[in-house]
Design a protein around this nucleic acid. Structure first.
Lengths: 235, 235
DNA sequence: TAGGTTTTTCCCAATTCCTTAAACTTGATT
DNA sequence: AATCAAGTTTAAGGAATTGGGAAAAACCTA
């Protein structure tokens, strides 16, 4: 039989938490609760959930920041998140959804409504399971080719288009020395006509990339240069 | 029919090992399991695998060290390695990822996810397979054309671009006496114009090369001089 | 279209590498 | 052993390559 789905509830109103938890358990879910933001963060990062319910107003770490943190965890980036808030103002709402919540419930709400939203999220064929995701990983770098996102250690690194493709080419050719010509052909395209002088643009992109993925950009460990030949991505 | 791909599984949780092995076998792989680091090491060095799955936390020899050892085996240096790590143990995790694993999976994970990551590694036709790597070896010298690296008795020797191509030319023409003209044509390029007198530059490069690859540079054993003709690389 | 981001170009400084020249060593030949 | 041709070694200048700053150009997006 299928494993029970696990839900994390982060809400500071104990009464409400108890009610919601009870309702969810009655519906067959496995529920974990946290009464403040920090505890919620601890749980979110150390266990894996199928859904996270976050109150926006929380003591300590607020729901919006927490949501953002969670979205930056490579392993939890795609967990569905439902936000709860007392205020239904346009502003909060937009902010909430922009940080990547999947749904938004305005207090007060009925248990019935709550449950049906939860079920909706569970039904949704979320991109959560990395089953069909096309990924490349190496060391503590992981890159999701489907979503074009890159994670270093535990947090997301924002790369531009060229940087991303460049990195992908490197990761598909670990350990190999790649010439500028090869990189241009594979990142810019075979047909990219280029004068000898413009190969320097490769160097510049390498620099931007190093800036973002190296721990110490001036002493690059991941992408090393092979003088006179090109660059090499170390495993 | 193609040979079954062989996977080595090093994980101390017997239950988990059994599950993973079963799943992998059902998917057509040949699975070998080890319940501790030492056994894993024995197997890794005495047999050849297409993929190795390592838990980080292991009794005795831990996964991180094991991974490092494997990466130092010349014949297994490029086997894809997937690490299994427990969530939350920030420190171990980061360390592990730097030793050159090709992917990592955070526990708890689903069997489906596990399998898809295994398949991803197997699918990869990258230079990770030692089979596809372009290598030249002779005695205790090994030179990896793809990565442009040279190893002398398992430790890397840093060569400059010219030195590297020079050595490659020698190793492709073992035992043959190569004239300076031949070397210039093959290392510097056919079109390299040079005054008769300046063939000395070849000698100078030979000298740097000897400095780096000979045990005793003043009594060269690998590259010997054939007076009046050129140089010869001894097997 | 304005404003921000991404991509490309350009230039200079730092560095590494290559060449050249010259002194020195070795080996062959007589 | 003396001589000469060929090879070796060292050091110094010069060439080539890369890194970093900055800004123009192209590209988006609101």
């Amino acid at each position: 039989m299928a494993r029970k789905k696990k839900i994390l509830l982060v809400e500071d109103d104990e009464m409400l938490t108890a009610n919601l938890a009870e309702k969810l358990r009655a519906d067959g879910y496995n529920v974990d609760a946290a009464l403040d933001g920090e505890t919620g963060w601890e749980k979110a990062r150390s266990d894996s959930y199928d859904l996270i319910v976050l109150d926006i107003m929380l003591p300590g770490l607020d729901g919006i920041s927490l949501c953002r943190f969670i979205r930056n965890l490579p392993e939890a980036a795609y967990v569905p998140i439902i936000m709860l808030t007392a205020r239904g103002t346009e502003h909060d709402r937009i902010q909430g959804l922009e940080t990547g919540a999947d749904d938004y419930i305005v207090k007060p709400f009925s248990l019935g409504e709550f449950l049906s939203r939860v079920r909706a999220q569970m039904r949704r064929p979320s991109p959560n399971r990395s089953l069909n995701r096309d990924e490349l990983a190496s060391g503590d770098l992981r890159l999701d080719l489907t979503a074009r996102r890159v994670f270093k250690r535990d947090s997301e690194v924002k790369l531009t288009n060229k940087e991303f493709t460049l990195l992908a080419v490197f990761m598909r050719n670990k350990q190999a020395v790649l010439s500028r010509d090869f990189l241009i052909a594979n990142v810019w395209g075979e047909d990219y006509l280029i004068g000898e002088s413009d190969k320097r643009t490769v160097d510049v992109h390498i620099r931007w990339l190093r800036e973002k993925i190296e721990d110490n950009p001036s002493r690059p460990k991941r992408i090393s240069t092979v003088r006179g030949v090109g660059y090499r991505f170390e495993g």
